[in-house]
């Protein structure tokens, strides 16, 4: 799991995704208050923070699923706007996987995966299906192409959801608490797929509660609290000597002291 070695020159890589002064509020209540964040090509950024801190909202704003009230989000220098003209084109460059998998229940696994390549990217069915099968193989699900989502376990559904995003060849992947709804024994199979993607040098933004996973995969850890970025550190520093009291308290929640 040597994923940091080839990333010595991360600071040299060009910035792929850029969030500038992002403000998001729901009904007058500010959830994100001036977020600045740069993600470089090939970087894995993990966002952690207490529940309700706005980390999922941040991912949703990046993909323009939520309208924003201030600031801007740029991908490859192109502005992502909720009602922008080129939104469909930019969205193909962003792959998103949600907590609740959200496969289409009326379509088979194969059709779930090949719908967007055929309809959005206008790729021929045969080519899309071939790529779908080879991606399914990589996540260990080659036998499930003809199954319906209801026939799969949670972990299998989530792996299909990852493949469904990957087949569009996104430049950046967003993972929104993808293991939070899974039974514990299925968490690993999904995280392994994400680790595999990290090894391939994919650019990813990951919201998670799995701290050990965060530590293993992250190039940078962002600690978000009450709508602000409080920490932006390499994982080894964040987990051993975070700069703020709040981050310390947050990390403390994941530790248990011996009763005896």
């Amino acid at each position: 799991m040597d994923i940091t070695d080839n990333k010595e020159n991360m600071t040299e890589a060009p910035v792929l995704l850029s969030v500038r002064g992002l403000v998001k509020s729901f009904d007058g209540k500010t959830v994100l208050d001036g977020i600045d964040l740069d993600v470089r090509q090939g970087e894995v950024v993990v966002i952690v923070g207490p529940s309700g801190c706005g980390k999922s909202t941040l991912l949703r704003c990046i993909n323009a699923l939520e309208p924003i009230q201030g600031g801007e989000v740029l991908l490859d220098g192109q502005k992502i706007e909720k009602d922008g003209k080129n939104l469909t084109a930019i969205r193909q460059k962003i792959g998103m996987v949600f907590q609740s998998y959200d496969l289409f229940p009326h379509l088979t696994v194969l059709d779930n995966i090949t719908l967007a390549p055929q309809k959005v990217q206008k790729r021929p069915r045969r080519e899309a299906e071939e790529e779908a099968i080879s991606l399914l193989k990589r996540v260990g699900l080659e036998g499930k192409a003809g199954s319906y989502p209801r026939e799969l376990s949670g972990g299998q559904k989530q792996r299909v959801a990852i493949v469904r995003a990957l087949i569009l060849h996104p430049e950046v992947m967003l993972f929104d608490e993808v293991t939070a709804a899974l039974d514990p024994e299925m968490v690993r199979e999904v995280l392994d797929v994400i680790l595999q993607l990290a090894r391939q040098g994919r650019t990813m933004l990951i919201v998670t509660h799995e701290m050990q996973f965060a530590r293993a995969i992250a190039d940078r850890v962002i600690f978000l609290d009450e709508g602000h970025v409080l920490e932006d550190l390499p994982p080894e520093r964040f987990f051993t000597e975070p700069g703020t009291e709040r981050a310390k308290n947050f990390l403390h929640m994941f530790e248990f002291e011996a009763v005896r």
Binding site: L65, H106, L115, V120, A161
Partner: peptide
């Protein structure tokens, strides 16, 4: 579920494609 609309949107499907391929087939069933 709202998520069916959102995951279609996240895949880049337009509003009318979302209805044609995702929402209407499920509604009809």
């Amino acid at each position: 579920p709202k998520h069916q609309y959102e995951s279609s949107e996240a895949l880049g499907l337009s509003r009318s494609q979302t209805f044609a391929y995702v929402i209407i087939p499920q509604t009809v069933r």
